[in-house]
């Protein structure tokens, strides 16, 4: 069954590009929801049937790390897998993200092939 995806990024450009890359990667996905920061993402997760989250780290209002921390404490949404998509893929910040439940990371810039390689097993 196709997975519903939530894209979390303060850049509408990046949300469009990630959507395009998912299509170009040939991944089977259902609805795509969008959020501009962690706060909006939590609202979407509480309302919609989201199967997988792709989240930026560096965002206003609530960044990706804060989003993971808040999400991990909410029953009903805490087990939804989250991938980080960010320019920041140093061991320290990705390590922190994974300690808060992130299941993987995709570094910008990325190609459709890389999207397929990283996300394919989860889609």
């Amino acid at each position: 069954m196709a997975k519903n995806v939530l894209l979390v990024d303060d850049s509408s450009t990046m949300r469009k590009i990630v959507t395009r890359s998912l299509r170009q990667a040939g991944l089977d996905f259902g609805d795509i929801f969008e959020a501009g920061d962690g706060l909006e993402a939590l609202e979407v997760l509480e309302k919609e049937a989201v199967d997988i989250v792709l989240s930026d780290i560096n965002m206003p209002n609530m960044n990706g790390i804060e989003f993971l921390r808040e999400k991990s404490g909410r029953d009903g949404i805490k087990d939804i897998p989250v991938f980080m998509i960010s320019t920041e893929t140093g061991d320290d910040i990705i390590g922190e993200a994974k300690s808060l439940g992130a299941v993987g990371a995709l570094k910008k810039p990325f190609t459709p092939d890389k999207v397929n390689e990283v996300l394919g097993p989860f889609m």
Binding site: S11, S12, T13, M14, N58, T87, E88, T89, G90, K108
Partner: peptide
């Protein structure tokens, strides 16, 4: 503006690394 800002953001991430 968003696209240009995102290119700066990606380059900034590389420089940070």
């Amino acid at each position: 503006q968003d696209a240009v800002g995102e290119i700066a953001n990606m380059l900034g991430g590389n420089v940070k690394t």
